[in-house]
Design a binder for these strands. Structure first.
Length: 575
RNA sequence: UGGGGUGUCGCCAAGCUGGUAAGGCAAUGGACUCUGACUCCAUCAUCCGAGGGUUCGAAUCCUUCCGCCCCAGCCA
């Protein structure tokens, strides 16, 4: 029995692994598997990228192969080093390491240029002097073929000369492009003489101003794959149409065999989440969130900050599986399930009250405080995880005045309500049984405090006479409780399907309550939490200490709530 | 409209050489419980986008139709 961080859920392999199996059997790649994760460094990675990362690195790991991290940096106008750094950090956080150093398409600008000359010499590419508009207008429509450029039949010598002068910087931006001489009548638009190189005087994050012509994706990607010896080039469905030019170019410049093969899979979508870069930018720039790593963002940095462990994201990807069905959407509840599953095994349990109401124990001596030793990991749960290095118990003060959760008390309680209410007895976790004797109200008629008595014989939480209670409540001692900022998150979008309303913007559907900040009362041990610590607030949920925490003053993010059966009962019975 | 894809339970997804619908999430009922959590047990597609056809037998083969996604950036 091995202890993989992600269980092997698949009873059958997905279509990509099946294909690789076949290639292994046939020896098509000499038993090699070499993949690559190829982000463009123009933004932050989000949960959608996690699927591609898990696939590419996962496949390499499973087949004893390699996976490169290659930055597809062929458009200098959009790319920045800042993104390179965040992408590397996020991939590592997810638990993967690329083969060797990270690679860049820009590493191959020289080789790619040579391939372009090769293409020209073979009569398979030409320099087009048409404007962008002219090129677009002559590309044809869905039903009509495109028209050939008047420059399409220039001589090889002229093309070579022009292309060299493009590179030398003799022509202004946008004045000429290098195009593949493919098929203007192809029903596949991608084949209608795609642009291979454009003139663009922009500072490149790595090559600076060394180049003024840059290759397009279609030209750079297949050849970069070939240069790196990639065997399986895995990408998302929207590149299906590009597969034809991918293969055409490899054949046209006659790269050595075996050649990489492109295989597409459906991207990951999750309800309540927007994953389009355009929309994410709007959320940040519109000030709807506090930044790219706002815990409400679907970015890996946001999810990390919220407290989602990398194991959970890997498990999500494994559970969602691979298919070619576009537009499928995983439910957010599956993600939350994965998060809880990981955290349930790893998070220490402590007590905090989010919405406090005061309880006075009438028969408990005034001024007395007793300290209980309480386990951080309940026995039934198997105790602390094997790699746990923190404390396994902590001291918790008990006194005459406590706070409990406002929801845990009802003056007029329905039968199914197992919590505190006048005349009923409940257990304060690991402490005593208490019985409610009544309430004290303020002038407004609101409950100011709850009066109770406790049974000293139940110390530790068990009655020697075998008497049982239906409910166990979490609590904190009011005198020693520490007030801490706690951020409660809900979906950024309440609707599962994020859509712009008629004549509006998708931001119109933002959930106004996606962030609620409360002052929680936490037991003393919790006040010691440091940024990155993840704990369970008993009966409430999992919380992670945010980077905004300072010594003795933690700030907590709610990662995910616990499942709440009572909430369902209450909903059904109408409160 | 041309081309390329895709349609199996509320959601994701097995099923591919035809033999009589895996699994997970969600949901529901129950057991257990010092977290109404966890765990455990049980229920949950006579039906596979629709209609024809082939066959003793089809989600799987043929055929017609319908829905949805992608493509007309000098973005990736």
């Amino acid at each position: 029995m091995t202890h993989e961080s992600v269980p092997d859920l698949a009873e059958s392999k997905d279509f990509i692994r099946e294909r690789i199996d076949k290639d292994m059997e046939s020896g098509a790649y000499g038993g090699r598997v070499h993949t690559r994760f190829p982000p463009e460094p123009n933004g932050y990675l989000h949960i959608g990228h996690a699927k591609s990362i898990c696939l590419n690195f996962g496949v390499a790991r499973e087949y004893g192969g390699k996976c490169n991290l290659r930055f597809d940096d062929t458009n200098p106008a959009k790319e920045e080093t800042e993104y390179v750094d965040s992408i590397k950090r996020d991939v590592r956080w997810l638990g993967f390491e690329w083969d060797g150093t990270e690679l860049y398409a820009s590493d191959y600008f020289g080789k790619l240029y040579d391939y372009a000359e090769t293409l020209i010499k073979k009569g398979k590419a030409y320099v087009d002097d048409q404007t962008a508009d002219e090129i677009r207008d002559s590309r044809g429509t869905l039903t009509e073929p495109g028209r050939e450029s008047p420059y399409r039949n220039r001589s090889v010598d002229e093309n070579l000369d022009l292309f060299r002068r493009m590179r030398a910087g003799e022509f202004p931006d946008g004045s000429r492009v290098l195009r593949a001489k493919a098929d203007m009548a192809s029903p596949n638009f991608v084949m209608r003489d795609p642009v291979l190189y454009r003139i663009r005087r922009a500072h490149h994050h790595r090559t600076g101003n060394a180049w003024c012509i840059y290759p397009m994706y279609d030209f750079a990607h297949c050849l970069s794959d070939s240069i790196e010896g990639i065997t399986h080039s895995l990408c998302t469905l929207e590149f299906e149409n590009n597969r034809e030019i991918y293969n055409w170019l490899l054949e046209a410049v006659d790269v050595p065999r075996p050649r990489p093969q492109q295989t597409e899979f459906a991207r990951l979508n999750i309800t309540h989440m927007v994953l389009s870069k355009r929309k994410l930018i709007q959320l940040v720039q519109g000030g709807h969130v506090r930044g790219w790593d706002d815990p409400r963002m679907p970015t890996l940095s946001g999810l990390r900050r919220k407290g989602y462990p990398p194991e959970a994201l890997r498990e999500l990807c494994a559970r969602v599986g691979m298919s070619r069905a576009a537009g499928t959407v995983a439910e957010y509840s599956l993600l939350e399930f994965c998060v809880r599953e990981v955290l349930n095994k790893t998070a220490p349990r402590l007590m905090a009250v989010l919405d406090p109401i005061k309880v006075v124990i009438e028969n408990y001596p005034e001024g007395q405080t007793e300290w209980f030793d309480m386990p951080c990991f309940p026995e039934e749960g198997g105790g602390a995880p094997v790699n746990w290095s923190g404390p396994v118990t902590r001291k918790v003060p008990f006194s005459r005045e406590l706070y409990i959760e406002r929801d845990d008390f009802k003056e007029d309680a329905p039968k199914k309500f197992f919590r505190l209410s006048p005349g009923r007895e409940v257990r304060l976790r690991y402490a005593y049984f208490i019985t409610c004797t009544g309430v004290v109200k303020n002038e407004a008629g609101e409950i100011a405090e709850i009066r109770c008595t406790y049974d000293p014989a139940t110390k530790g939480g068990d009655a020697p006479d075998g008497r049982k209670v239906k409910g166990t409540l979490h609590w904190v001692s009011s005198g020693e409780a520490v007030p801490v900022e706690t951020r409660l998150y809900e979906h950024l979008f309440a609707a599962g399907e994020v859509e712009a309303p008629e004549g509006g913007n998708f931001t119109d559907t933002l959930n106004p309550d996606s962030l609620r900040v409360v002052t929680a009362r936490v037991e003393p041990a919790l006040a010691e939490a440091k940024a990155g610590d993840v704990v369970q607030f008993e009966r409430l949920g999992y919380f992670r200490a945010d980077e905004d925490s300072t010594p003795g003053k933690p700030v907590f993010n709610r990662t995910v709530t616990l499942k709440d059966a009572w909430a369902k009962i209450e909903q059904k019975t109408g409160g």
